[in-house]
Each structure stands twice: as structure tokens, then as C-alpha cells.
Amino acid sequence: MTGIFVPEPVVQVRNLGKVYGPFSDETISRTGSSFGSARDAVIGSIVAAWDISFDVQPGEALGIVGESGSGKSTVLRCIAGDVEATTGDIRLANVDEGKVNILDFDASRRRRLRIDQLSVVYQDPAEGLSLGITAGGNIADPLTAAGWRNYSAIRTRAKELLNRTEVPIDRIDDLVRTFSGGMRQRVQIARALANNPGVILLDEPTTGLDASVASGVLDLIRSLLEELNIAAIVVSHDFRVIEMLTERCLVMHHGRIVENTLTDQLLEDPQHPYSQELIAAART
């Protein structure tokens, strides 16, 4: 133990696991990175994620990188509550002082966390927004859920957020359906920040956007993370995203963490054979 001050984590995940189908200890030991598959060849169950543990400090962005099928999105969705975890312990500093496992909460309490404790920005903005209502309306949603009842206060806050996410304010009353992909993503980010959550989860936030649009959104996310001192978990298969946004990251392969390291160390000195493969492929 050194005297270096590392703040208490905002998010603490221990032994998070998600298995689809029945399983035993053997199932776990027959799957994973060294077995080349998350699927148990004997039973057929899929160990989508297993033994996932990490911390996220306040104001820090932690990356989770891996190819599709690695389990990284599963981990994010388990934390978000979109998917029910099989096992694990997740604590949030702002919920019961981090003393309680949120996986023990019932569905409605988990849902309430999503109002002002934990927000998600999905790869597909349509998943995090209602396309048939206005940009302002999409932001009014979490605000009213948190108890906001003053129309002009809601409008002011919505304009503030749209401004901060560089969406033209005169589009506040346009249906989100009429926005381009990059703009939709910005509205999704604005909505996610509405109630100042302590934690934000970003799932492939720029995948699917044109390169120039993506870099704008990435810049935005980065400056927001710096400015707001929010804890973030960024899931991506794209190393440029991880490099731009994170200081530390995890590499996942077939449902397991194979490397947990500093981001620059991963990019320049990857240790695990799979990490080396990934980095080499990214460099070409």
C-alpha cells in the first residue's frame, strides 16, 4: 500500500457473470479464451461473460475492448440492467454509499437507477431515444421522471444540454426521426446527461457513423468526460475510440478478461497473445 491517493471507485464490479443456459463448474472451465469459445461444446450453454471484475474511479473512463462475441456488450448490459446477470456484485458509490449490490435490487428499483444514477448511450440511437417525439421531448422524459414539473425550466435545461452537445437549439422541437445519425447520437448523449448521473455507459458510441461525424462525436464525448468528472465505461472494438477516451482498459475474449491494463500500455506493449493479435490487426 502506497500513500498515493486513489479515490474510492464510483463503480465496483466483482465476479460478474452471464451464462445462457444451464451450467456447472465444468461448463465454466470448458469455455473461455484459452478454449477458443464461449460456448460449452458439451451442454451447449454460452458463458457470455465470466469472472469480470474491475473498478472505475470518479472522472475516469474505463475501456472494454474486444471483437464481437467477446462479451463486452453483455457486461455493459448487465451493469445497465438491460440483461439480467447470472452472478456478481456491482456497487455504485452513490447508491446506498456503495454498500449494496445493485444486482439484488428488483426490476423496478434497477429501473429507477436509470433515471439519475446511471445512463446508457447505445450504439443505435433509436434504442436510447423515441424517434417519434421531439429532441426536447426526449430530454423532458428523464427530467419528468426525476420529478421536474416546470415547463420552462425543462425547456431551459433541454436547451442547455443540446447546446452542450452541439445540437442546434432551433431543432429542439424537431422530431428526432428527422435528425441524421450523428445528430441523433448527440441527442442521445444530451438525454443521458439530463439528470447528472454519476456513471455513464457508452456502447460503441460512434460505430456506424461516418468517419468525420464520428470524430466530432468522439471529441464531444471526450470533452464532456473531462468537464463533468463523470465515471464512464466505454465499450468498443475500435482502438481509436479507446485511445481517445480512456486511460485504462480491459480486453475481453470469449467472455473473459484477458488483459487489464493502462490504455497506452495496451496499445504499445500488449502482453496477452490475443491482445497482441488485436493490436497488430488494428495497426494494419
Partner: peptide, 24 residues
């Protein structure tokens, strides 16, 4: 890793010849 992150910047700095990627 978290300790390294905590001391980088304030205690130890690194300046390479290239500007880190942040175009905008």
C-alpha cells in the same frame, strides 16, 4: 494501474515528438 494514472501528469510527465490525436 490506478496509481499510475494518479501520478501521471502531476508527478511524472512525458512529451513525445508527436502531438497526441485530438484533431478538433
Amino acid at each position: 494501474d490506478s496509481e499510475i494514472v494518479a501520478i501521471r501528469g502531476r508527478e511524472i510527465g512525458y512529451v513525445s515528438q508527436f502531438l497526441r490525436a485530438q484533431p478538433r
